[in-house]
């Protein structure tokens, strides 16, 4: 939040992604999972932009569309002013040094047969011309930065606990001095006491290195702690984007309201009225017509079943994709 400039670092414009499933008799895909639908948002430099939503809402797919682990079917992605979604792989590759990723599973995302210092130095091997000695020095320095000891570099990933491995993953992401770090559920596999350590580390690093985070999570309390701006996704659509205080203080979309009311608060005095949503998430191969949320929305009307709502601006950087943004559940 410290130095928000006017130009967004990352700008996602009307991005959609469909995955083919099922094949017709002639082998052509006839069914699609609509994973991400017409998603647009801006991430300003130095801020933490979070995407929250339940499993299958498309938050991870969105992050992968940005760093081109998968390519979008439609839409554009601008990074640092440059359109990147259609760049040839060769031209895109150097840009990856500027956007690094931290993954969810600290067990699966580190190569078990590599020494920790080699894991951390690997991005340097790919993106820089540093010598082996310089890379090693940088790796040891980074171990210190993330709160491990430089001597840990000689060890292998299995010798570390979950929280320590996540620190290694963060050190690897930092090695090439990225501008943007995409963190996909970085703390959800960790115990609460360890989760707090890692969240604090992410905070400190952001202040020290002027990082921008795109933070993907399903945990609304974690997101509230770390974010400046939050986007809520449902069935591949962004239903609401708002600055942190605004979203948690005045949630406008019925889904955001239901989601917030469902989070258990660790305080027995807080007896919340839950908005219990009926039924389950519809299948993403067959997204309901009209508003995607109308099948479970307590406020749904005839209009919601037929007409797809457009984003309404209800405040500074606060948009709601609902026909009735003024109503509450």
């Amino acid at each position: 939040m410290s130095n928000v400039k006017s130009e967004p670092l990352l700008s996602v414009r009307h991005v959609s992604k469909r995955f083919p499933v099922g094949k017709s008799f002639f082998g052509r895909a006839n069914k699609f999972v609509h994973a991400v639908n017409d998603v647009s948002f801006d991430v300003m430099p130095g801020e933490t932009f979070s995407i929250v939503g339940e499993s299958g809402c498309g938050k991870s797919t969105t992050s992968r569309l940005i760093n081109r682990l998968i390519d979008p079917n439609e839409g554009e992605v601008y990074f640092d002013g440059q359109e990147i979604s259609k760049l040839p792989a060769k031209e895109f590759r150097p840009l990856r040094a500027k956007m690094q990723m931290v993954f969810q599973d600290p067990y699966g995302s580190l190569n078990p047969r590599m020494k920790v210092q080699d894991i951390i130095a690997e991005p340097l091997l790919v993106h820089t011309n540093l010598s082996a000695g310089e890379r090693l020095k940088r790796a040891q320095e980074l171990l210190g930065v993330v709160g491990l000891s430089p001597t840990h570099g000689e060890r292998y990933p299995h010798e570390f606990s979950g929280g320590q491995r996540q620190r290694i993953g963060i050190a690897r992401a930092l090695s090439v001095n990225p501008k943007l770090i995409i963190a996909d559920e970085p703390v959800s596999a960790l115990d609460v006491s360890i989760q707090a350590q890692v969240l604090n580390l992410l905070r400190d690093l952001q202040e020290e290195y002027d990082l921008t985070y795109l933070f993907i999570s399903h945990d609304l309390a974690v997101v509230e702690m770390i974010s400046d701006v939050v986007a809520v996704m449902y069935l591949g659509h962004i239903v609401e984007i708002a600055p942190n205080e605004e979203l948690y203080g005045h949630p406008s979309h019925p889904y955001t309201q239901a989601l917030l009311s469902a989070v258990p608060v660790p305080d027995p005095d807080v007896k919340k009225e839950h908005i219990l949503l009926q039924g389950d998430l519809p299948s993403p191969t067959n997204i309901p017509a009209g508003c995607p949320f109308h099948t479970r929305c307590p406020l749904a009307t005839e209009k919601c079943k037929t007409e797809t709502p457009k984003p309404h601006t209800v405040g500074e950087r606060h948009t709601v994709t609902c026909h009735y943004p003024e109503k509450t559940v």
Binding site: S193, Q197, N200, R203, A221, E224, L260, P266
Partner: peptide, 19 residues
């Protein structure tokens, strides 16, 4: 150390070390 909805803190108190 549990982040709590509605009570935003800049840093979470954490327990050092691990189990």
């Amino acid at each position: 150390s549990v982040p709590r909805l509605g009570r935003r803190v800049h840093r979470l108190p954490s327990i050092p070390g691990s189990v």
